[in-house]
Design a protein around this nucleic acid. Sequence first.
DNA 1: TGCCATACCTTGCACCGCAAGGTATCATGC
DNA 2: GCATGATACCTTGCGGTGCAAGGTATGGCA
Lengths: 125, 125
Amino acid sequence: MAGRVIPPPPEPADKWEVQLRKGCLELAILAALWSERLYGLEIMRRLADGSGLIVPEGTVYPLLSRLKAEGLLSSEWVEADAGHPRKYYRLTAAGRRRVVEMARFWENFSASLDDLLAPVRKDTR
Amino acid sequence: MAGRVIPPPPEPADKWEVQLRKGCLELAILAALWSERLYGLEIMRRLADGSGLIVPEGTVYPLLSRLKAEGLLSSEWVEADAGHPRKYYRLTAAGRRRVVEMARFWENFSASLDDLLAPVRKDTR
DNA sequence: TGCCATACCTTGCACCGCAAGGTATCATGC
DNA sequence: GCATGATACCTTGCGGTGCAAGGTATGGCA
């Protein structure tokens, strides 16, 4: 087919949602790894099923690499019974510390924004 | 002076905070304008005093321009009793609609992240 | 006349999400 | 065998954005 599907007109309305996720994704992924090791696609499924956070591969893999390079994650290849081998990621000690730190920051931050939104909520109910 | 102050080594640890604010800033500013018109520096003070959101000028002014260009804000110059005239911003009808929309999205999003963080919170208490 | 405070704006860099496109491995059907 | 599809990981390039730094204009004050 020659004509492309027309890259859906980048509605400026939903761009802010993309921005909102920046930074949060890092937290989300680290949090998902809190209690067990997971591999790439598994993380994506976790976030999608558990929290409705749809994160494409092109986002997850570079992010995982970066987090590993920063020493927050370690990885190990594991042969699967069938199919492609999987690269499992787990939190390092520094990673665990960071999650706790970020969780605290998130708590403050989201509380602040909630305060700012209080008047809006009040008027729209 | 010749030697610059050494641009403080961009600690990778606090970069994520910068990222987290992306998108949220737009929401924060629109929310601050929910009940009254404000001018640039006033908005910054609001966010800083009310929510600890330190937002530099280089961020606020371009953002305000963008929001105006998108039709979410309108502006008017007002002579001050003293000093430089002020440019007051107020929400347009589209802006009000957008805030409500964003507030709803924010509520879902932050709830999802809170869920993800539940195990972390449980272990660190 | 300088100087500071208030107020607004612009430039340039660095960062990051993500669509698109790519590679490797195995199972299955013909 | 050989194509096909599923699973899994990775890379490139573009566009959007925060923000440090630097700049302009106005009025008060010593």
